Amino acid sequence: MRIAEKLIRTTMLTILFICMTQFAAFAAGTPIGEVVSMIGSVVAEQPDGTVRQLELNEQIITQDVIVTGIKSTVEILFKDESIYSQGPEARISLDDFVYSEEKSATRLLFSMGKGTFRYVTGQIVKTNPDAFALQTPTTTIGIRGTEVFAVVTPQKEEIGNTKLSKGHTMTVGNKSLDTPRTSVSVDPMTGAISDPTPVSQETINKVVKEAPMTSQGELGNADVSSKDIERKIESFKQQIERNKGSLGSLDDKPDYAQLHILKVQKTSLETSESNHDSGDTTGDLGGGGGGGGGGH
């Protein structure tokens, strides 16, 4: 009996500690988004040392540092409808995020530490583009309606876009990228930034595979656990429902881009369900939507 009582007491204390940790974290910051897809191990660190183990549908708050483990990825949908994904062994600090009806108050500042990142812009860039910035250890990225990627290592930073809306641009330091599928290389030692060059399809495929977006119907990397396939299935189901909700009524003009993404999401859901039913957790899951999607 004493052993059972001790076990129950220990379990209750553990649950209480977890609840207090979560409460302390949310007291420290404002919810700014939620995890819409993930595999592996992902944590959120706060400046006060609080660490939260993230799961599907969990809230993300200001000043979170998002850290992915080995063979781990995460996708976050922010309040302004922007989408962010992060590859394995990467970290980013969500320093500042305000999405407000008051345009002058709206702002975003994220600092990328290392790894592979992708970002599809949302309402903040539309309403107050000058208050939007993504930072790497070496330079600052400005965005005007695009899908940006960055691969940050101690030796080199490659920064570019997979899609660029008509009439929009992207800046990396003092360089402007005015055409789709272009990138620059940044030397972390000197800060020198190369002239823009076309992004190879090989690079795009690698970035999409490392940091997939279920919102674009992308399946991502291979070699995932049964639990991760279950997460992916749930992610696709939720993304499909979100996508259906954004299509409007039958009287509205068809959004063919969203309809295409919806079709890809359904195909990826079927593939994930098939892999789960067959017990195949090591087969190549492919790239799904392959090269970015939606764009805002």
Rank of each mutant, 00 (worst) to 15 (best):
K266T: 14
I229T: 07
V207T: 03
K232V: 05
E210V: 07
S272A: 15
E241G: 04
G220R: 09
L262F: 05
L250K: 11
V207K: 01
D223F: 13
V184P: 06
S249R: 09
L250H: 07
P188F: 09
D195M: 08
S235A: 15
E230P: 00
A222G: 15
M189L: 14
I240Y: 06
K263S: 15
S185P: 00
E230Q: 12
Q265A: 07
E202R: 12
D251H: 07
I229R: 13
V264E: 09
M213G: 09
P188G: 10
L250W: 07
Q258R: 13
D187W: 08
K227Y: 11
L269W: 09
K206I: 00
Y256G: 00
A192M: 11
S274H: 14
K209N: 14
P188Q: 10
H260P: 00
S215A: 15
Q265R: 05
D252V: 01
V208K: 01
D255Q: 02
N275A: 13
K237P: 05
V186T: 11
E234Q: 11
Q238Y: 05
A192L: 12
M213I: 08
F236R: 12
E210R: 14
K209H: 12
T182W: 10
L259M: 14
N275R: 15
D187C: 10
G217S: 12
L247M: 13
G220I: 10
